[in-house]
């Protein structure tokens, strides 16, 4: 079965998120004074073949550890859904 996965990668709270800070500053400059915080991360979209949603998630987790994420500086979330195609 084909699954769609999205890996949401964000800088760790302990790491200076320079892009987030820059976005934050600019938005406030534009008048969005209610803004409390902005963080910039990245999304990796993956389509993969797996037996079940669980095994798809396991497989994507392993991808994160092997390549997609540097756990020293980043955290990640995985969202899995069955692909209609």
């Amino acid at each position: 079965m084909i699954f769609k996965a999205e890996v949401h990668i964000m800088p760790r709270k302990t790491v200076l998120d320079t892009q987030g800070k820059a976005v934050e500053k600019t938005l406030i400059h534009l008048g969005y004074t209610s803004l409390k915080e902005a963080n910039v991360g990245k999304i990796v979209k993956i389509r993969l073949d797996a037996e079940s949603a669980d095994s798809a998630k396991k497989s994507v987790e392993s991808m994160c550890q092997d390549l997609l994420v540097n756990e020293l500086t980043e955290t990640f979330d995985i969202i899995i859904e069955a692909s209609c195609k």
């Binding site: 800088p11 790491v15 200076l16 320079t18 892009q19 820059a22 540097n70 020293l72 500086t73």
Partner: peptide, 10 residues
């Protein structure tokens, strides 16, 4: 050990 991340100046 460690990581190299984007310069603060971006």
């Amino acid at each position: 050990p460690g990581a190299l991340i984007p310069n603060t100046s971006l």
